[in-house]
Computed example of a mutant assay.
Amino acid sequence: MTNTATTPSGQPLGISHKPSRTAAMFDELDKANRPAFIGYLPYGFPDPEVSLKAFKTLVDHGVNAVEIGLPYSDPVMDGPVIQAASQIALNHGESIHGVFRAVETVANAGGVPLIMSYWNLIYHYGVERFARDFENAGGAGLITPDLIPDEAGEWIEASDRHGLDRIFLVSPDSAPERLAVVSKAARGFVYAASRMGVTGERKTITDSPEALVERTRKAGASRVCVGIGVSTAEQAAKVGAYADGVIVGSALVHQLLGETGRKALDEAEGLRNLAAKADELAQGVASAR
């Protein structure tokens, strides 16, 4: 049987020279002196079909790149809002097999499709198989919150073969040596977590992310985006003043949830809320510089 990492003739696949779509996005935004607006939603929430409409809504209302989350039963980084949304998605039978429809939806809408996933899901799907299917769907890059470069050899090779970006995380506690390792291994951008802990909306954003962005750039990163806690236009403008991109997750997911946080809103109401919040945040990002 021919290995999936070889050509039909059995020759090993080489390195793709396809340019980074994420890098191209940043270059285009640089011309307007604007940071990127990166929005997150879990695939399959509140159900697979509505989630596709939600991803398109994000792009239609100012989101440049979409983080498509793969719901997971044992998250280590997700706060209560994203956990609730992910559980609803899992209850509706969400699986990794369908996520590539979301990738195609974002790409067709004109956005840059990213996937954010815990490594266990990719590993069990098959690393080479995932990279191939992701590329074929029009994907740009993978964010791996629980995979460090030191243990990412298989993914680094597969992403090089398929021209996909590798987005690793750093935190305010990351040592200079760790920042250098991550910056060297990353392709597309480095994800700077604004604080230690899980995702979630916050009333204030401290100055620690700005220092982390500066340290990460000094360590060799060409692009650094900040996430975790950004939930208002004011916060987005503050972060966008120094970061290459502003990442928003919980504040967007929240728009599709009812008051109890356990049940999704009616489709029409949820999508209206999502569009309004994306517009608000997009204005904040646009006013950052």
Score class of each variant (00 low, 15 high):
10 G>F: 01
10 G>R: 00
13 L>Q: 03
16 S>E: 06
17 H>Q: 11
20 S>L: 02
20 S>E: 03
20 S>T: 01
21 R>V: 03
21 R>L: 14
22 T>Q: 07
23 A>S: 12
23 A>I: 13
27 D>G: 00
27 D>W: 04
27 D>E: 14
28 E>T: 07
29 L>M: 10
30 D>L: 12
31 K>H: 06
33 N>G: 02
34 R>M: 10
34 R>D: 04
35 P>I: 04
35 P>K: 04
35 P>S: 07
36 A>M: 08
40 Y>G: 03
41 L>D: 08
41 L>S: 08
42 P>D: 12
42 P>A: 11
43 Y>N: 09
43 Y>Q: 10
44 G>W: 00
46 P>E: 07
47 D>C: 03
47 D>P: 00
48 P>D: 11
48 P>A: 13
48 P>Y: 04
50 V>D: 09
51 S>L: 00
52 L>R: 09
54 A>N: 01
55 F>Y: 09
57 T>E: 02
60 D>H: 07
61 H>V: 05
62 G>I: 10
62 G>Y: 13
63 V>E: 03
65 A>C: 07
66 V>C: 04
66 V>D: 03
66 V>I: 10
68 I>R: 10
68 I>Q: 08
69 G>E: 08
69 G>C: 11
70 L>P: 02
70 L>T: 06
71 P>E: 13
76 V>M: 15
76 V>N: 09
78 D>L: 08
80 P>S: 06
81 V>T: 10
82 I>M: 14
84 A>V: 03
85 A>M: 01
85 A>K: 00
87 Q>G: 06
88 I>K: 01
90 L>T: 05
91 N>Y: 06
91 N>M: 08
91 N>S: 13
92 H>I: 07
92 H>V: 08
94 E>Q: 12
95 S>I: 12
96 I>V: 14
97 H>G: 11
99 V>I: 15
99 V>E: 08
100 F>G: 01
102 A>D: 05
102 A>P: 00
103 V>Y: 10
104 E>T: 11
105 T>M: 12
105 T>D: 07
105 T>A: 14
109 A>S: 11
112 V>Q: 08
114 L>V: 05
120 N>M: 13
121 L>E: 14
122 I>E: 11
124 H>Q: 15
124 H>E: 13
126 G>K: 12
126 G>S: 13
127 V>C: 13
129 R>P: 05
131 A>Q: 03
132 R>G: 07
133 D>S: 12
134 F>H: 05
134 F>L: 11
135 E>S: 15
136 N>Q: 15
137 A>N: 09
138 G>Q: 09
138 G>F: 09
139 G>H: 05
139 G>S: 08
140 A>I: 10
142 L>I: 15
142 L>M: 15
142 L>G: 09
143 I>S: 04
